[in-house]
Design a protein around this nucleic acid. Structure first.
Ligand code: MN
Ligand code: MN
Ligand code: MN
Ligand code: MN
Lengths: 224, 224
DNA sequence: GCGGAATGTTAGACTTGCCTAACAATTAAG
DNA sequence: CTTAATTGTTAGGCAAGTCTAACATTCCGC
């Protein structure tokens, strides 16, 4: 069964479960899902039960939520759609990287596999979206995200940004002002333990910038 | 209220009513609507009743179906979306003109006004879609379709194709083979009354082609 | 103008996705 | 270890959109 046969809701549920485990190993819970999806916990609980009945997730009452192989396939297909659409909107239609997430969140349910293939061709088979997230390939190949949170990077380390969470458009605009984006190189100058401020300097910049804990936890980096 | 606040169904109903009166003056009926929408007459009847309750159409039981000013506004907005999307898919993503209708039929409900504006900009504010249908402008200005059915054109007349119905992808592929498309100039050679065959010659072509009544009724032309 | 055919409407049911309210289970604090 | 807070589930309801079956109206041929 193709992913497009699932309801919009089911598509979003699966994608969310998958996303939750991409950059973090803490398992997803019903209440977190409800909050992310903007529905009540009872709704999310119900939805998960239905997915379990369809064999797309495993879940016993009060138990953990895990994708089955089939559920994961569909989830990856949705992630691919989402990220290709974001990339297309930025590269072809001149969207800002802070404007694409909500649009893609809707479009991902409406596009055909044919259209996704055309977009992929037109873009030359990109491997990362505007926020640095890896784009799964058409065959659903596992892709290997890497990097650690900037807030976990040691002081005086030289790092390259690999990924910035697209959860909060406001924050993305702030990062634009600071010149922070995927592939930007920076030096972690200092981490003040109690105030939890991370001081960084962008390569080529002549001054430091301070990031609060929320901002520093939205940026992933690799040593570089 | 923006058109995007209406349900998908309401959007399609309004668009269909508007489309039905664009190139023909015979009023739309419940059964025709049901057939075009792929639902049962009872469903269409119900849907129309709901639209009437919202003030988007006027309709008394067993009476005629007419758009109100507000309903027409929404309908035109949907037609604009549909035709801009078709144009975009052909010009930017290399779709064939026979492939765009079904895709646009879905996408039209998912795109934001912002995305439509971007597409319009990117295309340079096109005025006709790939089938020759006029694209309503952003302010919902009435646009003026013109032309008569090729099946109504007199023999030995020189005409230019203005529009080809996109209802049937199969027929569009046939027209592609014959080299028939909007803006193509042709001569009507003969109309055989009983068999209802229209013989045409494309300008620059060295042979005639015969069109059956269905094909000739899918093409609109103006004297040229 | 009548009567049957075609067309349109209503009634009742089902599905999906959402809600609130009440309840159950788990977890965390003391 | 016990209890209180948190988290998750169930029950019951609602709205939208679809269906089938039964019924009403209109149209058309004679
Ligand atoms: Mn979505
Ligand atoms: Mn992204
Ligand atoms: Mn079309
Ligand atoms: Mn549609």
């Amino acid at each position: 069964m193709p992913v497009s046969d699932l309801s919009h809701a089911a598509q979003d549920y699966l994608k969310l479960i998958w996303n939750a485990t991409e950059w973090s190993s803490t398992p997803i819970t019903v209440s977190v899902m409800a909050e992310r999806l903007g529905v009540r916990p009872s709704t999310a609980s119900d939805g998960i039960k239905k997915l379990a009945k369809q064999g797309l997730v495993t879940h016993a009452p009060y138990g953990s939520i895990e994708l089955t192989a089939e559920g994961r396939e569909h989830a990856v297909a949705m992630v691919r759609r989402h990220r290709l659409l974001e990339t297309f909107l930025v590269q072809v239609l001149g969207y800002g990287w802070d404007e694409v997430h909500d649009e893609a969140e809707i479009l991902e349910h409406a596009v055909s596999d044919f259209l996704i293939a055309r977009i992929d061709d037109h873009l030359g088979h990109p491997t990362r979206d505007p926020h640095g997230d890896p784009i799964p390939s058409a065959d659903g190949k596992p892709h290997l995200p890497q990097g650690i949170l900037l807030s976990d990077a040691g002081p005086e380390s030289e790092v390259v940004i690999t990924r910035i969470s697209d959860d909060d458009p406001e924050m993305l605009r702030y990062f634009t002002e600071l010149g922070l984006a995927p592939d930007v190189r920076l030096t972690v100058r200092e981490r003040r333990p109690y105030t939890d401020v991370t001081t960084i300097r962008r390569q080529g910049s002549d001054h430091d910038a301070d990031l609060g804990p929320v901002a520093a936890a939205a940026i992933w980096v690799v040593a570089g």
